[in-house]
Design a protein around this nucleic acid. Structure first.
Lengths: 188, 188
DNA sequence: AGCACCTAGTCACATTGTTGAGTAGGTTGA
DNA sequence: TCAACCTACTCAACAATGTGACTAGGTGCT
Protein backbone atom coordinates (compact mmCIF):
# COMPACT_ATOMS: atom_id res chain seq x y z
CA UNK A 1 0.00 0.00 0.00
CA UNK A 2 2.53 2.56 1.13
CA UNK A 3 4.86 1.76 -1.74
CA UNK A 4 2.00 2.68 -4.04
CA UNK A 5 1.56 5.96 -2.17
CA UNK A 6 5.28 6.67 -2.43
CA UNK A 7 5.03 6.11 -6.19
CA UNK A 8 1.96 8.32 -6.49
CA UNK A 9 3.83 11.02 -4.56
CA UNK A 10 6.80 10.75 -6.90
CA UNK A 11 4.42 11.16 -9.85
CA UNK A 12 2.45 13.99 -8.26
CA UNK A 13 4.27 16.79 -10.08
CA UNK A 14 5.85 15.11 -13.10
CA UNK A 15 5.11 12.11 -15.23
CA UNK A 16 7.92 9.61 -15.51
CA UNK A 17 8.92 6.18 -16.70
CA UNK A 18 9.56 3.20 -14.46
CA UNK A 19 13.23 3.55 -15.11
CA UNK A 20 13.32 7.22 -14.16
CA UNK A 21 11.31 6.43 -11.08
CA UNK A 22 13.87 3.82 -10.08
CA UNK A 23 16.59 6.45 -10.24
CA UNK A 24 14.51 8.90 -8.24
CA UNK A 25 13.91 6.25 -5.59
CA UNK A 26 17.59 5.63 -5.45
CA UNK A 27 18.59 9.20 -4.81
CA UNK A 28 15.80 10.93 -2.93
CA UNK A 29 12.98 8.60 -1.92
CA UNK A 30 15.37 6.08 -0.29
CA UNK A 31 15.23 8.30 2.80
CA UNK A 32 11.84 7.02 3.69
CA UNK A 33 11.09 4.16 1.37
CA UNK A 34 13.28 1.74 -0.51
CA UNK A 35 12.24 -0.20 -3.59
CA UNK A 36 14.07 -2.00 -6.35
CA UNK A 37 13.24 -1.33 -10.00
CA UNK A 38 11.43 -4.66 -10.12
CA UNK A 39 9.13 -3.64 -7.32
CA UNK A 40 8.36 -0.36 -9.05
CA UNK A 41 7.46 -1.99 -12.36
CA UNK A 42 5.19 -4.39 -10.57
CA UNK A 43 3.43 -1.68 -8.59
CA UNK A 44 3.09 0.56 -11.62
CA UNK A 45 1.24 -2.23 -13.40
CA UNK A 46 -1.05 -2.62 -10.41
CA UNK A 47 -1.65 1.13 -10.22
CA UNK A 48 -2.52 1.13 -13.91
CA UNK A 49 -4.98 -1.74 -13.43
CA UNK A 50 -6.53 0.17 -10.54
CA UNK A 51 -6.90 3.27 -12.71
CA UNK A 52 -4.70 5.45 -10.49
CA UNK A 53 -2.14 6.09 -13.23
CA UNK A 54 -2.23 5.99 -17.01
CA UNK A 55 0.61 4.78 -19.16
CA UNK A 56 1.63 6.03 -22.54
CA UNK A 57 4.29 4.34 -24.65
CA UNK A 58 6.96 6.67 -25.96
CA UNK A 59 9.02 5.40 -28.90
CA UNK A 60 12.66 6.38 -28.77
CA UNK A 61 15.33 6.20 -31.39
CA UNK A 62 18.46 4.30 -30.39
CA UNK A 63 16.87 3.39 -27.07
CA UNK A 64 14.23 0.90 -26.03
CA UNK A 65 10.70 2.29 -25.98
CA UNK A 66 9.58 3.45 -22.59
CA UNK A 67 6.26 3.67 -20.82
CA UNK A 68 5.61 7.01 -19.20
CA UNK A 69 3.19 7.13 -16.27
CA UNK A 70 1.06 9.98 -15.02
CA UNK A 71 -1.50 10.36 -12.24
CA UNK A 72 -5.19 10.19 -13.02
CA UNK A 73 -7.83 12.14 -11.09
CA UNK A 74 -8.49 8.94 -9.14
CA UNK A 75 -4.78 8.69 -8.38
CA UNK A 76 -4.73 12.22 -7.05
CA UNK A 77 -7.73 11.41 -4.86
CA UNK A 78 -6.06 8.23 -3.56
CA UNK A 79 -2.94 10.19 -2.68
CA UNK A 80 -4.97 12.69 -0.70
CA UNK A 81 -6.89 9.90 1.03
CA UNK A 82 -3.59 8.31 2.02
CA UNK A 83 -2.51 11.40 3.94
CA UNK A 84 -5.68 11.17 6.05
CA UNK A 85 -4.81 7.70 7.33
CA UNK A 86 -2.70 7.34 10.43
CA UNK A 87 0.83 6.37 9.38
CA UNK A 88 2.27 3.13 10.64
CA UNK A 89 5.33 3.28 12.86
CA UNK A 90 8.66 3.48 11.10
CA UNK A 91 10.41 0.24 10.19
CA UNK A 92 14.18 0.00 9.89
CA UNK A 93 16.26 -2.92 8.71
CA UNK A 94 20.01 -2.61 8.84
CA UNK A 95 22.22 -5.67 8.77
CA UNK A 96 25.25 -3.57 9.69
CA UNK A 97 23.65 -2.65 13.01
CA UNK A 98 22.77 -6.30 13.57
CA UNK A 99 26.45 -7.11 13.10
CA UNK A 100 27.59 -4.36 15.44
CA UNK A 101 25.13 -5.56 18.06
CA UNK A 102 26.75 -8.99 17.72
CA UNK A 103 30.25 -7.56 18.02
CA UNK A 104 31.36 -9.91 20.80
CA UNK A 105 29.97 -12.98 19.05
CA UNK A 106 31.27 -12.10 15.62
CA UNK A 107 34.49 -11.30 13.84
CA UNK A 108 35.57 -7.79 14.96
CA UNK A 109 37.88 -7.21 12.01
CA UNK A 110 35.25 -8.11 9.43
CA UNK A 111 32.74 -5.90 11.21
CA UNK A 112 35.23 -3.03 11.29
CA UNK A 113 35.69 -3.34 7.53
CA UNK A 114 31.91 -3.31 7.02
CA UNK A 115 31.63 -0.12 9.06
CA UNK A 116 34.34 1.51 6.94
CA UNK A 117 32.57 0.52 3.72
CA UNK A 118 29.24 1.74 4.98
CA UNK A 119 30.72 5.05 6.09
CA UNK A 120 31.91 5.61 2.53
CA UNK A 121 28.39 4.91 1.31
CA UNK A 122 27.00 7.40 3.86
CA UNK A 123 29.40 10.06 2.65
CA UNK A 124 28.54 9.44 -0.99
CA UNK A 125 24.86 9.69 -0.21
CA UNK A 126 25.33 12.89 1.78
CA UNK A 127 27.20 14.42 -1.15
CA UNK A 128 24.29 13.55 -3.46
CA UNK A 129 21.80 15.07 -1.02
CA UNK A 130 23.82 18.28 -0.84
CA UNK A 131 23.79 18.47 -4.63
CA UNK A 132 20.03 17.96 -4.75
CA UNK A 133 19.64 20.61 -2.05
CA UNK A 134 21.67 23.16 -4.00
CA UNK A 135 19.75 22.49 -7.18
CA UNK A 136 16.45 22.72 -5.32
CA UNK A 137 17.23 25.98 -3.57
CA UNK A 138 18.72 27.44 -6.76
CA UNK A 139 20.20 30.40 -4.94
CA UNK A 140 17.27 31.10 -2.62
CA UNK A 141 17.80 30.97 1.13
CA UNK A 142 16.44 27.97 2.97
CA UNK A 143 14.29 30.10 5.26
CA UNK A 144 12.61 31.73 2.24
CA UNK A 145 12.15 28.44 0.48
CA UNK A 146 10.52 26.81 3.50
CA UNK A 147 7.92 29.57 3.84
CA UNK A 148 7.29 30.59 0.24
CA UNK A 149 7.88 27.62 -2.06
CA UNK A 150 4.68 25.70 -2.82
CA UNK A 151 6.43 22.32 -3.15
CA UNK A 152 8.03 22.11 0.24
CA UNK A 153 7.24 18.49 1.20
CA UNK A 154 10.10 16.90 -0.70
CA UNK A 155 12.49 19.45 0.71
CA UNK A 156 11.49 18.65 4.29
CA UNK A 157 12.17 14.97 3.72
CA UNK A 158 15.49 15.89 2.11
CA UNK A 159 16.47 17.75 5.29
CA UNK A 160 15.70 14.62 7.28
CA UNK A 161 17.84 12.60 4.91
CA UNK A 162 20.76 15.01 5.29
CA UNK A 163 20.75 14.99 9.08
CA UNK A 164 20.30 11.23 9.04
CA UNK A 165 23.41 10.68 6.94
CA UNK A 166 25.38 13.18 9.00
CA UNK A 167 24.50 11.27 12.16
CA UNK A 168 25.35 7.99 10.47
CA UNK A 169 28.81 9.28 9.63
CA UNK A 170 29.38 10.58 13.17
CA UNK A 171 28.25 7.27 14.59
CA UNK A 172 30.46 5.23 12.24
CA UNK A 173 33.46 7.34 13.23
CA UNK A 174 32.71 6.72 16.87
CA UNK A 175 32.41 2.98 16.32
CA UNK A 176 35.76 2.90 14.53
CA UNK A 177 37.39 4.92 17.32
CA UNK A 178 35.98 2.52 19.94
CA UNK A 179 37.12 -0.55 18.01
CA UNK A 180 40.62 0.88 17.62
CA UNK A 181 40.87 1.90 21.26
CA UNK A 182 39.80 -1.57 22.33
CA UNK A 183 42.23 -3.25 19.94
CA UNK A 184 45.04 -1.06 21.33
CA UNK A 185 44.03 -1.85 24.92
CA UNK A 186 43.92 -5.58 24.14
CA UNK A 187 47.36 -5.51 22.49
CA UNK A 188 49.07 -4.24 25.65
CA UNK B 1 17.92 -14.48 7.00
CA UNK B 2 18.83 -11.29 8.77
CA UNK B 3 15.84 -11.53 11.06
CA UNK B 4 17.25 -14.86 12.14
CA UNK B 5 20.60 -13.22 12.79
CA UNK B 6 18.96 -10.47 14.81
CA UNK B 7 17.27 -13.15 16.91
CA UNK B 8 20.51 -15.09 17.34
CA UNK B 9 22.20 -11.85 18.44
CA UNK B 10 19.47 -11.19 20.98
CA UNK B 11 20.02 -14.70 22.34
CA UNK B 12 23.82 -14.48 22.30
CA UNK B 13 24.24 -13.63 25.97
CA UNK B 14 21.00 -14.76 27.60
CA UNK B 15 18.42 -17.36 26.86
CA UNK B 16 14.89 -16.02 26.60
CA UNK B 17 11.34 -16.86 25.69
CA UNK B 18 9.58 -15.68 22.56
CA UNK B 19 7.57 -13.29 24.62
CA UNK B 20 10.64 -11.76 26.25
CA UNK B 21 12.24 -11.49 22.85
CA UNK B 22 9.22 -9.62 21.55
CA UNK B 23 9.63 -7.07 24.32
CA UNK B 24 13.36 -6.76 23.65
CA UNK B 25 12.65 -6.18 19.96
CA UNK B 26 10.17 -3.52 20.94
CA UNK B 27 12.55 -1.55 23.13
CA UNK B 28 16.08 -2.01 21.90
CA UNK B 29 16.32 -4.03 18.69
CA UNK B 30 13.75 -1.81 16.92
CA UNK B 31 16.65 0.54 16.20
CA UNK B 32 17.92 -1.71 13.50
CA UNK B 33 15.31 -4.38 12.98
CA UNK B 34 11.59 -4.57 13.53
CA UNK B 35 9.53 -7.72 13.94
CA UNK B 36 6.15 -8.56 15.35
CA UNK B 37 5.73 -11.30 17.97
CA UNK B 38 4.20 -13.53 15.30
CA UNK B 39 7.28 -13.22 13.14
CA UNK B 40 9.50 -14.05 16.10
CA UNK B 41 7.59 -17.19 16.99
CA UNK B 42 7.72 -18.31 13.38
CA UNK B 43 11.45 -17.71 13.07
CA UNK B 44 12.18 -19.33 16.43
CA UNK B 45 10.48 -22.48 15.20
CA UNK B 46 12.57 -22.39 12.03
CA UNK B 47 15.76 -21.81 14.02
CA UNK B 48 14.90 -24.77 16.20
CA UNK B 49 14.28 -26.98 13.14
CA UNK B 50 17.65 -25.84 11.78
CA UNK B 51 19.35 -26.76 15.04
CA UNK B 52 20.59 -23.22 15.74
CA UNK B 53 18.63 -22.89 18.98
CA UNK B 54 17.22 -25.36 21.47
CA UNK B 55 13.96 -24.86 23.30
CA UNK B 56 13.16 -25.94 26.81
CA UNK B 57 9.68 -25.68 28.30
CA UNK B 58 9.55 -23.97 31.67
CA UNK B 59 6.46 -24.56 33.78
CA UNK B 60 5.36 -21.54 35.74
CA UNK B 61 2.90 -21.20 38.59
CA UNK B 62 0.17 -18.62 38.02
CA UNK B 63 1.44 -18.03 34.49
CA UNK B 64 1.28 -19.95 31.23
CA UNK B 65 4.23 -22.22 30.58
CA UNK B 66 6.89 -20.68 28.44
CA UNK B 67 9.45 -21.99 26.00
CA UNK B 68 12.92 -20.68 26.66
CA UNK B 69 15.36 -20.60 23.76
CA UNK B 70 19.13 -20.73 23.84
CA UNK B 71 21.84 -20.81 21.20
CA UNK B 72 23.45 -24.09 20.23
CA UNK B 73 27.07 -24.37 19.13
CA UNK B 74 25.79 -24.37 15.54
CA UNK B 75 23.83 -21.20 16.29
CA UNK B 76 26.93 -19.50 17.63
CA UNK B 77 28.81 -20.51 14.51
CA UNK B 78 26.02 -19.19 12.27
CA UNK B 79 26.07 -15.87 14.11
CA UNK B 80 29.81 -15.55 13.61
CA UNK B 81 29.46 -16.51 9.93
CA UNK B 82 26.83 -13.81 9.54
CA UNK B 83 29.25 -11.10 10.63
CA UNK B 84 31.64 -12.15 7.87
CA UNK B 85 29.11 -11.51 5.13
CA UNK B 86 28.84 -8.05 3.65
CA UNK B 87 25.76 -6.36 5.10
CA UNK B 88 23.02 -5.26 2.75
CA UNK B 89 22.28 -1.57 2.51
CA UNK B 90 19.90 -0.18 5.08
CA UNK B 91 16.21 -0.21 4.31
CA UNK B 92 13.82 2.33 5.81
CA UNK B 93 10.08 2.43 5.55
CA UNK B 94 8.24 5.37 7.06
CA UNK B 95 4.71 6.24 6.01
CA UNK B 96 4.93 9.55 7.85
CA UNK B 97 7.76 10.70 5.59
CA UNK B 98 5.77 9.56 2.56
CA UNK B 99 2.93 11.78 3.77
CA UNK B 100 5.22 14.75 4.37
CA UNK B 101 6.69 14.32 0.90
CA UNK B 102 3.13 14.51 -0.44
CA UNK B 103 2.36 17.64 1.59
CA UNK B 104 1.06 19.67 -1.36
CA UNK B 105 -1.09 16.83 -2.65
CA UNK B 106 -2.48 15.81 0.71
CA UNK B 107 -4.36 17.25 3.66
CA UNK B 108 -1.94 19.55 5.53
CA UNK B 109 -3.91 19.53 8.77
CA UNK B 110 -4.10 15.75 8.94
CA UNK B 111 -0.39 15.53 8.19
CA UNK B 112 0.37 18.08 10.91
CA UNK B 113 -1.55 15.98 13.40
CA UNK B 114 0.38 12.86 12.35
CA UNK B 115 3.67 14.69 12.90
CA UNK B 116 2.54 15.73 16.39
CA UNK B 117 1.59 12.15 17.27
CA UNK B 118 4.83 10.78 15.94
CA UNK B 119 6.85 13.34 17.84
CA UNK B 120 5.26 12.10 21.04
CA UNK B 121 6.26 8.56 20.10
CA UNK B 122 9.83 9.72 19.41
CA UNK B 123 10.00 11.35 22.84
CA UNK B 124 8.65 8.28 24.58
CA UNK B 125 11.19 6.10 22.81
CA UNK B 126 14.03 8.45 23.67
CA UNK B 127 13.02 8.33 27.34
CA UNK B 128 13.14 4.53 27.23
CA UNK B 129 16.57 4.58 25.60
CA UNK B 130 17.88 6.93 28.27
CA UNK B 131 16.61 4.56 30.93
CA UNK B 132 18.28 1.59 29.28
CA UNK B 133 21.47 3.63 28.98
CA UNK B 134 21.47 4.50 32.68
CA UNK B 135 20.85 0.91 33.68
CA UNK B 136 23.56 -0.30 31.31
CA UNK B 137 26.22 2.12 32.49
CA UNK B 138 25.26 1.54 36.15
CA UNK B 139 27.31 4.50 37.34
CA UNK B 140 30.32 3.96 35.09
CA UNK B 141 31.36 6.67 32.68
CA UNK B 142 30.59 6.12 29.02
CA UNK B 143 34.24 6.47 28.01
CA UNK B 144 35.24 3.70 30.44
CA UNK B 145 32.38 1.50 29.37
CA UNK B 146 33.24 1.83 25.68
CA UNK B 147 36.82 0.76 26.20
CA UNK B 148 36.57 -1.75 29.01
CA UNK B 149 33.19 -3.46 28.92
CA UNK B 150 33.27 -6.76 27.01
CA UNK B 151 29.70 -6.46 25.75
CA UNK B 152 29.91 -3.16 23.94
CA UNK B 153 28.04 -4.00 20.70
CA UNK B 154 24.56 -3.46 22.07
CA UNK B 155 25.64 -0.20 23.66
CA UNK B 156 26.95 1.14 20.36
CA UNK B 157 23.62 0.43 18.68
CA UNK B 158 21.86 2.08 21.61
CA UNK B 159 23.89 5.24 21.01
CA UNK B 160 22.77 5.20 17.38
CA UNK B 161 19.17 4.83 18.54
CA UNK B 162 19.48 7.78 20.90
CA UNK B 163 20.89 10.17 18.34
CA UNK B 164 18.36 8.95 15.80
CA UNK B 165 15.43 9.77 18.06
CA UNK B 166 16.95 13.13 19.00
CA UNK B 167 17.23 14.02 15.32
CA UNK B 168 13.69 12.82 14.72
CA UNK B 169 12.41 15.15 17.41
CA UNK B 170 14.36 18.12 16.06
CA UNK B 171 13.09 17.41 12.57
CA UNK B 172 9.48 17.08 13.71
CA UNK B 173 9.72 20.41 15.52
CA UNK B 174 11.08 22.02 12.38
CA UNK B 175 8.28 20.57 10.26
CA UNK B 176 5.67 21.90 12.69
CA UNK B 177 7.31 25.33 12.69
CA UNK B 178 7.32 25.40 8.88
CA UNK B 179 3.69 24.31 8.66
CA UNK B 180 2.65 26.98 11.14
CA UNK B 181 4.65 29.71 9.44
CA UNK B 182 3.09 28.78 6.10
CA UNK B 183 -0.41 28.67 7.57
CA UNK B 184 0.17 32.13 9.08
CA UNK B 185 1.50 33.47 5.79
CA UNK B 186 -1.48 32.03 3.90
CA UNK B 187 -3.97 33.54 6.35
CA UNK B 188 -2.80 37.09 5.67
C1' DA C 1 37.60 -6.03 -31.43
C1' DG C 2 35.90 -6.70 -27.04
C1' DC C 3 34.31 -5.34 -22.50
C1' DA C 4 31.79 -2.79 -19.40
C1' DC C 5 28.05 -0.04 -18.52
C1' DC C 6 23.44 2.34 -19.73
C1' DT C 7 18.57 2.17 -20.95
C1' DA C 8 14.26 -0.24 -20.20
C1' DG C 9 12.24 -3.55 -19.08
C1' DT C 10 10.01 -9.05 -17.75
C1' DC C 11 9.44 -13.39 -14.96
C1' DA C 12 9.57 -16.50 -11.07
C1' DC C 13 10.47 -17.34 -6.54
C1' DA C 14 11.66 -16.31 -1.66
C1' DT C 15 11.29 -13.69 2.40
C1' DT C 16 9.09 -10.64 5.32
C1' DG C 17 5.08 -8.50 7.35
C1' DT C 18 0.00 -8.20 8.63
C1' DT C 19 -4.48 -9.56 10.30
C1' DG C 20 -7.59 -11.90 12.89
C1' DA C 21 -8.89 -15.46 15.86
C1' DG C 22 -8.35 -18.58 19.70
C1' DT C 23 -6.74 -20.28 24.59
C1' DA C 24 -6.38 -19.45 29.48
C1' DG C 25 -5.39 -17.68 33.76
C1' DG C 26 -3.65 -13.45 36.68
C1' DT C 27 -3.35 -8.52 38.07
C1' DT C 28 -4.81 -3.78 38.60
C1' DG C 29 -7.81 -0.04 39.38
C1' DA C 30 -12.55 2.42 39.65
C1' DT D 1 -17.31 -6.81 40.99
C1' DC D 2 -16.33 -5.98 36.51
C1' DA D 3 -13.61 -4.38 32.83
C1' DA D 4 -9.35 -3.77 31.00
C1' DC D 5 -4.91 -5.15 30.51
C1' DC D 6 -0.82 -8.51 31.09
C1' DT D 7 1.54 -12.97 30.36
C1' DA D 8 2.46 -16.49 26.88
C1' DC D 9 1.65 -18.35 23.44
C1' DT D 10 -0.55 -21.12 18.59
C1' DC D 11 -2.58 -21.29 13.98
C1' DA D 12 -3.91 -19.92 9.41
C1' DA D 13 -4.28 -17.10 5.49
C1' DC D 14 -2.95 -13.50 2.96
C1' DA D 15 -0.52 -9.24 1.47
C1' DA D 16 3.57 -6.74 0.67
C1' DT D 17 8.27 -6.56 -0.15
C1' DG D 18 12.82 -8.26 -1.88
C1' DT D 19 16.11 -11.15 -4.89
C1' DG D 20 18.12 -13.20 -8.91
C1' DA D 21 18.26 -14.26 -13.47
C1' DC D 22 17.20 -12.96 -18.09
C1' DT D 23 16.55 -10.13 -22.69
C1' DA D 24 18.40 -6.82 -26.00
C1' DG D 25 20.23 -3.00 -28.37
C1' DG D 26 23.33 1.28 -27.79
C1' DT D 27 27.44 3.90 -26.16
C1' DG D 28 32.11 4.75 -24.65
C1' DC D 29 36.79 3.19 -23.74
C1' DT D 30 41.07 0.93 -24.70
Amino acid sequence: MALQDAILTALAHDESSGYDLAKAFDVSVANYWTASPQQLYRELDKLEDAGLVTARTVAQTKRPDKRVFRLTAAGRKALRAHTLRSPKPMAVRDELLVQVAALESGDPEAIREHVVERMEAFEAKLAVYHLVQERTLAGRSEADYLVAEPRVGQYLTLLRGISFEEENIRWAQQVLAVLDARAAAAAE
